[in-house]
Design a protein around this nucleic acid. Structure first.
Lengths: 194, 194
DNA sequence: CGCGGCTACTCACTCAGTGAGTATACATGA
DNA sequence: TCATGTATACTCACTGAGTGAGTAGCCGCG
């Protein structure tokens, strides 16, 4: 992942995995995969081997370190922990703005919210507001694109129209998006074991 | 691409490229790429080398054949043509239902519409109707998922809520989806930033 | 007459994503 | 009791998505 240059839209749950390690004690791949499915299964879809792939890459990049720990009866675990560099990268990602695309809002932004709610809950309202601003700006751009797309590209116009509608749905959602209150119908998120 | 098993959601524009060959005379990769960008640039995003990669795979799978044609001054072209197998696969894909996911509707379905409008325009209204039915069924499933997601997974609930809103936007779009008439614009959404 | 942009394709690479395999432990119930 | 299934924990080998740089001659433009 290029160091600085905005995390436009991570395409794999690497930061979610880093985040589980940043928000809790060291743990192993099997457990991280299970938590990804349990906690963010509607956001990310990764097979078990995909999770292991990502973790191996994170280790190769020096963001996590590992120690193999034998167990009495069950298979040995490779215990993973964040390196200082890994923690720094995660925090940088968490604080960075989410890329301006619908997918980034659905996937990256919710992941950021998840960890912000646990690690820096005071950041949450500002994040939602910033995201709303980004979404409005993007909506504006898409409308300009649509206006600039000639009638001889009806399918590009169709696609833009759909993206505009979807983005409007994102904006509505953001306006009601208060994870600590639950989603419109969902009950409160406990302040958590700090 | 597994032969039979529904084309759930092609992740690359391979069928669009086959379609350009199915709908017109043999042509070369550079031209196919340009047409992909010009005609469906809001649907698919592929770099030039990605297009060449896909074409090479299609050839390896026997769906297209190629002949290199030298030119007087400009670089030689590799002229591509559909094989009978390629045409059969394309027609099968065109007639198949689009997978039940939001992405599939935004990407696969619009691509199908594009080629259906050119090759079998009489199919279009039925396709839209079928897609509407699929979308309603999916909406129902998502609502059931949301109801089944416990309150201790607030971020899964958040993600489902967003998907439901986006799917509702797809349904609105489908209901107004008449490609040959141009697009009737989405109603302006929240009164914020105009 | 130099410069950027078009035509047309190639190569080498990393990451995404799948599927099958390995080997042990424990619960279930017929 | 003993087969069956499920959970633990990780490994390997593969195809495909996607990027970026490179090549190299041609053409128009000021």
């Amino acid at each position: 992942m290029s160091q600085d240059a905005a995390y436009t839209a991570s395409r794999s749950p690497e930061f979610a995995l880093l985040g589980f390690l940043a928000a809790g004690p060291p743990t192993h791949g099997y457990d991280l995969h299970r938590r990804l499915i349990d906690e963010l299964g509607q956001v990310w879809h990764a097979s078990q081997s995909q999770t292991y792939n990502i973790l191996a890459r994170l280790e190769a990049r020096g963001l996590v370190g590992s120690t193999v720990v034998a167990q009495a009866r069950l298979p040995a675990r490779r215990l993973l922990e964040l390196t200082p560099d890994g923690r720094a990268q995660f925090e940088a990602w968490l604080a960075a703005p989410t890329g301006a695309s619908i997918r980034a809002m659905r996937v990256d932004f919710i992941t950021r919210l998840y960890f912000a709610a646990r690690l820096h809950p005071e950041m949450v309202p500002g994040m939602v507001q910033r995201e709303l601003n980004t979404a409005h700006a993007l909506l504006h751009d898409l409308q300009a694109d649509l206006a600039a797309t000639p009638a001889d590209q009806p399918f590009n116009r169709l696609a833009l129209d759909l993206r505009i509608r979807q983005l409007s749905a994102v904006i509505d959602w953001l306006a009601n998006c208060t994870p600590n209150e639950g989603v419109s119908h969902a009950p409160p998120l406990p302040p958590d074991l700090a």
